[in-house]
């Protein structure tokens, strides 16, 4: 912890800055000083309405979704001991998308709260299938295998979604906006709907820090801990499903946040999961909200969805990891 202390301050400062920017920057130019005073003393003006009813809820949504994705990514990487694990890469997002689009097409569901349950189901099924394929054979789930299995399952699911959206045009119209993760344009009630799921997932994940450290020591020494290993894995999988499912149902699939953030967290604290998990929860919103603010600015008067910005920013990180490590480690 000691060697990470100055960095921890930097992370917290960055988080504070990005929260400020997210409340201060938008389609309507409002001077930052005025925004600041409106935050504390809403005066009933339309500027106050924009700050309190649009920007603050959007920022809180980004905070929650970012934390969920970052922690889910850290959990995945710890559980599978796989530096390439990411909900987007391991088919979890595609599973949630396929389940949601199926529900929209067959049942005509549009209620975000109903989305969540279908997203949970799809995310859970897809992760089990990917993990099952990746662990086939004696040598177990290597990072490369999980990534490839995730790619295969994602491609099949995405082709399925494409087929459905061609048969049902209304589904296409909804899907193609949802397919690009976005923080804007959600009803104010969405935050309250997903908050319980994300909070529960975060608490569960952070509580798993100590047992995850045992797994990190290696499969064999971990095995001595016996049943706790199984329990940790099951609880970890539940936490991942809840976090990814809720985040994906709320704002659509967002890839690479869960991949890149844990690497940054580990670089700061070292491999202690008790610290990596909460730190990921702090760093991920910086990346997500930062990408969101960039998206609001670069494409004025329109907006660039956060899912696009984060993929364009996160994929190079992924490629850098792949290039840096020796293949034997991968």
């Amino acid at each position: 912890m000691r060697r990470g202390a100055p960095w921890l301050l930097v992370v917290l400062a960055a988080l504070a800055l990005v929260l400020l920017l997210s409340v201060g920057v938008g389609a309507r130019p409002i001077p930052l000083g005025r925004v600041w005073s409106l935050v504390w003393r809403p005066d009933g003006s339309s500027d106050a309405a924009i700050v309190h009813d649009l920007r603050i809820p959007r920022t809180l949504l980004g905070l929650m979704v970012g934390a969920a994705l970052g922690v889910a990514g850290a959990l995945m990487q710890a559980l599978t001991r796989n530096p390439l694990a990411d909900p987007g890469l391991l088919g979890v997002n595609a599973g949630a998308a396929a389940a949601v689009v199926t529900a929209t097409t067959l049942l005509g569901t549009v209620d975000p709260l109903a989305y969540i349950w279908f997203a949970f189901l799809g995310a859970a099924v897809a992760s089990v299938v990917v993990y099952g394929i990746g662990t086939a054979g004696r040598s177990g789930a290597t990072p490369v295998r999980l990534a490839l299995a995730g790619t295969a399952v994602s491609i099949a699911l995405i082709a399925y979604v494409e087929g459905l959206t061609i048969v049902d045009r209304e589904a296409l119209d909804q899907y193609r906006f949802w397919a690009v993760g976005a923080l804007g344009g959600h009803p104010g009630s969405l935050n309250a709907q997903i908050a319980p799921f994300i909070l529960a997932g975060l608490v569960l994940a952070v509580a798993l820090g100590r047992p995850l450290n045992a797994i990190g020591l290696g499969e064999d020494s971990g095995r001595a801990l016996g049943a706790r290993l199984v329990r940790t894995r099951v609880l970890g999988a539940v936490a991942i499903t809840v976090l990814c499912g809720a985040a994906t149902a709320a704002v659509g699939p967002i890839a690479f946040v869960g991949l890149a953030v844990p690497h940054v967290a580990r670089a700061i604290t070292g491999p202690d999961e008790r610290l990596v998990l909460p730190l990921s929860a702090a760093i991920a919103p910086v990346m997500l909200l930062g990408a969101d603010v960039v998206g609001r600015v670069v494409n004025r008067p329109g907006e660039l969805e956060v899912g696009i910005v984060s993929a364009l920013a996160g994929a190079p990180v992924f490629i850098a990891i792949v290039r840096r490590r020796r293949i034997a480690q991968l």
Partner: peptide, 19 residues
């Protein structure tokens, strides 16, 4: 490595297409 870099570049290109 070719395959994994391919996955990364594909993700970026898909983001561009979605946009």
């Amino acid at each position: 490595r070719l395959v994994l870099v391919g996955i990364g570049i594909s993700a970026m290109l898909i983001a561009v297409t979605d946009y």
